[in-house]
Design a protein around this nucleic acid. Structure first.
Length: 591
RNA sequence: GGCUCCGUAGUUCAACUGGAUAGAAUGGCAGAUUUCGGCUCUGCUGGUUGGGGGUUCGAAUCCCUCCGGGGUCACCA
């Protein structure tokens, strides 16, 4: 419809003023609620062509369009805005068209493959609140890209080596007394995290002692015996020392087992895993080649740098003077590796916090400099930090919010809330437990995803499972109610067959909103933003609640209308479910 | 210090990427329905869009400049 209007506007301008206006000049938008009409054309850009005032131009154009477009029943002009009312018949046709599409809103196969990286944990401690946003975001964006017709490869790179890993290992050796997840009953990642904290404690004690003995703080930090032990362990690891490698493999496995449980609770998964222990040497040869081709330069001390003076970025070190690589080096290597493995990959999305904005800007610049044309398909899906209502939470200050604890807590809250007001009578114990986690985690996910990813946000646990407001449970509730309505209709033997009905304005609003669904999916895919989906669902649900409140459904006497309203409600439920699934949130039929 | 992102009702977020009188939710207040699900709905309250300047038919959005906040610029990972 919008395309048709654009076409006719261009035609109309030509006819009326013999002016040629490019289609791109024509802005069509949905008419705001305060005004009459469905679609609005902004006429300001045409004033130069018409040589008339905005009102007059709009009147002229409106007349032409009404004449020439059957579906346009009426128009009105407010300032420079031309509002068109589209016929009810048209909207009814739209509805019958969309209601029998199976994957309504989803785009056809694009033939493109896009890789989405998210999570990317360290194996020395459990996941925290920030990881939740990361995982939900990455997983949802992957879903959204799939809905846009792309083939998606979900991946993560696991930071399984390095000095921080050695720290947990040292502490476990020293203080662990052979403790295992089995013997302690602790989840593997929590157990390893515990020793990471142990290391830090011991380290601080040693530093304090050295300072007391008259050492400078900076020196003490490097001279502390336990720190030196960790360093020498790292060297041994790199040499492939058998004993260290066995310990390393054992402790990492504990962590992986723990993570698997967390991933399952979160409802996320991956298609392909990368381990830093396999990739950390990648990129060195690329840097060497770049140096030979004079794309990089070497300083006197032997370190290798990328010259980024053509941008506003500072030069970046790629190899240390001792020839070892830095993070950037392996990121370069890994990106190249991925494009080799997936030939024709048309996008690589990194879901990483915004503190790394600079890092990725540099990475992409260097890849471009090296002449990889695919670098423009790389995208840093950057997201802001989460704060709690009480104040900031930062991972270094020890006030980290553990992901597992948080999820457990929120499910417990959901349980309490649901038991208080839920309709659980006919549910088995298993169904109930599933429902609690559906509500708790659904609320959590929705809350974290409804905000524009780029922005920082405040997470309020209590609010996230509130049944009122822009929350997951509010939407789940609406869905459950529609299902219950449909079930009741069926038990009463109402038909869902209708021929011709006159639709009212509430129904028309709902159809218009559902008609937007495909373009919302496109928009969300273009901007990598689940928030766009979330806000759309909320709009739809509010509109439905409004309809539900003001229009009788089961009490309607006209069987045609009743049947139509059932179909309409059913379709709303379908769109709710489909769009919530894009966020990774399932919706119950009863709650 | 250089670069960069951000600042919107008391609070949490929107604003179709330059469009109409900046909208929701929550909170508070006042009502309606109390039936297909305990819910839901309506109204009121609340804003110098951090301040100032500019660009134009039109600015929360673009430019400049201050103020305030975050991030980053490691031979750390």
């Amino acid at each position: 419809m919008e395309n048709k209007l654009i076409e006719k506007v261009v035609e109309g301008l030509k006819h009326l003023y013999s002016a040629d206006v490019d289609e791109k000049q024509v802005q069509i938008q949905k008419t705001r609620k305060e005004f009459d009409g469905d679609l609005t054309v902004v006429v300001f850009p045409f004033l130069r062509a018409s040589k008339k005032g905005p009102e007059q131009t709009a009147e002229d154009l409106g007349g032409f369009i009404q004449e020439n477009v059957d579906e346009v029943e009426a128009f009105n002009v407010v300032k420079g805005f031309l509002n068109f009312s589209i016929s009810k018949k048209y909207w009814l046709d739209v509805f019958s068209n969309i209601s029998d599409q199976i994957d309504y809103g989803f785009q056809a196969d694009s033939g493109k493959t896009i890789m989405v990286e998210y999570c990317s944990p360290n194996t020395n401690k459990p996941l925290h609140l920030g990881h939740l946003r990361n995982n939900f975001l990455g997983y949802s964006v992957a879903n959204i890209l799939k809905a846009n017709g792309h083939n998606v490869v979900k991946t993560q790179i696991i930071n399984d080596r390095g000095i921080h890993i050695c720290k947990s290992m040292i502490a476990w050796q020293k203080f662990g007394e052979g403790e295992t997840p089995e013997s302690s009953g602790l989840k593997g990642d929590h157990l390893v995290g515990k020793y990471y904290v142990e290391f830090d404690k011991a380290y601080k004690v040693e530093i304090a002692r050295l300072i007391e003995e008259g050492m400078e703080k900076a020196v003490a930090e490097k001279e502390a015996p336990i720190f030196k032990e960790a360093q020498s362990m790292l060297l041994k690891w790199e040499e492939g020392d058998a004993e260290i490698r066995v310990l390393w493999a054992k402790m990492n496995q504990w962590v992986y087992d723990g993570f698997d449980v967390s991933f399952k609770t979160m409802g996320v998964d991956f298609d392909e895993l990368y381990y830093e222990s396999d990739t950390y040497l990648l990129g060195k040869d690329v840097v060497a080649q770049g140096l030979a081709k004079k794309e990089f330069y070497q300083k006197e001390d032997g370190s290798v740098w990328a010259d980024l003076s053509h941008t506003k970025l500072d030069d970046k070190i790629l190899l240390r003077s001792d020839g070892t690589s830095v993070y950037m080096t392996q990121d370069i290597g890994t990106a190249i590796e991925r494009y080799k493995k997936h030939t024709g990959l048309s996008g690589l999305i990194y879901t990483v916090g915004n503190e790394q904005n600079h890092h990725f800007k540099v990475l992409f610049t260097i890849l471009e400099k090296l002449g990889y044309s695919w670098a423009e398909g790389c995208y840093h899906l950057s997201y802001g930090m989460i704060e709690l209502p009480e104040g900031k939470m930062k991972s270094r200050e020890g006030t980290v919010v553990d992901a597992d604890d948080l999820m457990e807590m929120i499910v417990a809250d959901a349980k309490a809330m649901t038991q208080e007001r839920g309709h659980l009578d006919r549910m088995s114990e298993k169904e109930r437990e599933e429902l609690y986690s559906l509500i708790g985690l659904g609320g959590l996910k929705y809350f974290l995803l409804k905000v524009d990813p780029k922005k920082g946000m405040v997470f309020n646990p209590a609010e996230s499972i509130d049944l009122n407001g822009n929350t997951g449970p509010f939407i789940q509730y609406a869905h459950a109610r529609i299902q219950s309505l449909l079930a009741k209709a069926e038990s009463l033997g109402f038909s869902k067959q209708y021929e011709n009905v006159e639709i009212n304005s509430k129904e028309q609003e709902l159809i218009k909103l559902m008609n937007d669904y495909p373009s919302v999916i496109k928009e969300a895919g273009k901007l990598y933003s689940p928030a766009i989906i979330a806000n759309y669902i909320y709009e739809l649900v509010k509109e439905f609640n409004n309809f539900y409140q003001t229009v009788d459904i089961l009490r309607e006497e006209d069987v045609q209308k009743l049947a139509f309203r059932l179909c309409l409600s059913e379709m709303v439920a379908k769109v709710i479910k489909s769009s919530m699934l894009l966020l990774g949130v399932d919706v119950p039929n009863k709650m």
